[in-house]
Computed example of a mutant assay.
Amino acid sequence: MSRDPHKSKDFSQEDEAIARVREDLKQRFPLPPPTPAKNKRPAGKTLGLLLLAIVAGVAWIDPAYRSEHVASQVGQRQALLLADGTQVLLDSNTEMTISWHLRSRQVELKAGQALFEVSPMVYRPFLVDAGLAVVRVVGTRFNVRRQEQDVQITVAEGRVAVRAAATGAVAALEPGQQLRVHKGQEARLGRVDVDDVTAWQQSRLVFESTPLEDVIDTLQRYHRQPIRLMDPRLARLPVSGVFDSGHVDRLLALLPGILPVRVSTAADGSVLIDSPGQKK
């Protein structure tokens, strides 16, 4: 196809005229400079950052996503195998709540005694809240006893960190050490025979110059009826010996033979321990 040279020339002249007019308009009416976007991100990226912030916040507060309540009856021991491989043995009349969190594994020991053999998980520590003290471990074997306002933590293997709830003080315990926290008193750290402390696994109660009030606290865990110390002056009397936790009544009957006390039974079935000179 042939081109018309005159027509091409006309188009060229028209383009040049339009270009001159455009440049003249730009100079007369300049456009404002474009406003730079301030931290403008694609919607997808913004949403991703928001979700990341939410996840980070959730991880920081460490919420629980599952929990269970367990309890043993008087005279019963209960063995548990947790989902992470941790083994827990509950002593008689023990109550606890186990909860699984994003960043930790937690137990609240409400009352009683338990022996823990914790499966190691570096990034999810195992915490035991016993009221007056909180135990933190990664993987170890230890015993915790909670009796009202008295808590005892004994380490059999590994190491544990114990924080006193009242003062915030932290103590590191090694095998053979026991920390006792009693309300209104300073925490006491000492060495003990771990086998004696954990002998309850074999239904044995080992006392070595143990104050009578502590003995009564221990016996109460295996006895359905209340055991009451009527004369507070008897509280510090020492008791020594090895006894069967399955026959607490026998031990109570033996007490007058090894201590200056009198044991009687009230109308409601309660066991009363009093001074020999006191009348019923």
Rank of each mutant, 00 (worst) to 15 (best):
M1W: 12
R3E: 11
F11W: 13
S12R: 14
E14K: 14
A19M: 12
V21L: 15
L25D: 01
L25S: 05
R28V: 10
P36E: 06
A37S: 07
K38M: 08
K40R: 12
K40Q: 07
R41T: 05
R41H: 06
A43Y: 01
K45W: 02
T46A: 12
T46S: 10
T46M: 10
L49F: 06
L50E: 05
L51Q: 01
V55S: 04
A56V: 09
A59Y: 13
A59E: 05
I61F: 12
P63R: 10
S67T: 07
V74S: 08
Q78E: 12
L80M: 06
V88D: 01
V88I: 06
D91C: 05
M96L: 15
W100N: 13
E108W: 11
L109N: 03
L109Q: 05
A111S: 15
Q113P: 06
L115Y: 12
E117R: 15
D129T: 02
G131S: 00
A133C: 00
R136D: 03
G139L: 02
Q147A: 10
Q149E: 08
Q149L: 10
T154L: 09
V155M: 06
A156P: 03
A156S: 13
E157G: 09
E157F: 10
A161R: 13
R163L: 01
T167R: 00
L179M: 03
H182E: 09
E186W: 00
E186G: 03
L189E: 00
R191D: 10
R191I: 08
D193P: 03
D196M: 04
S203E: 15
E208C: 10
P211F: 02
E213A: 15
E213R: 15
L219M: 08
I227Y: 04
D231M: 03
R236N: 10
L237S: 01
V239C: 02
V242L: 04
P256R: 09
G257D: 12
G257V: 10
I258E: 00
A266N: 07
A267N: 11
A267H: 08
G269D: 04
G269L: 11
V271M: 10
L272V: 05
D274N: 10
G277V: 00
K280F: 07
K280R: 12
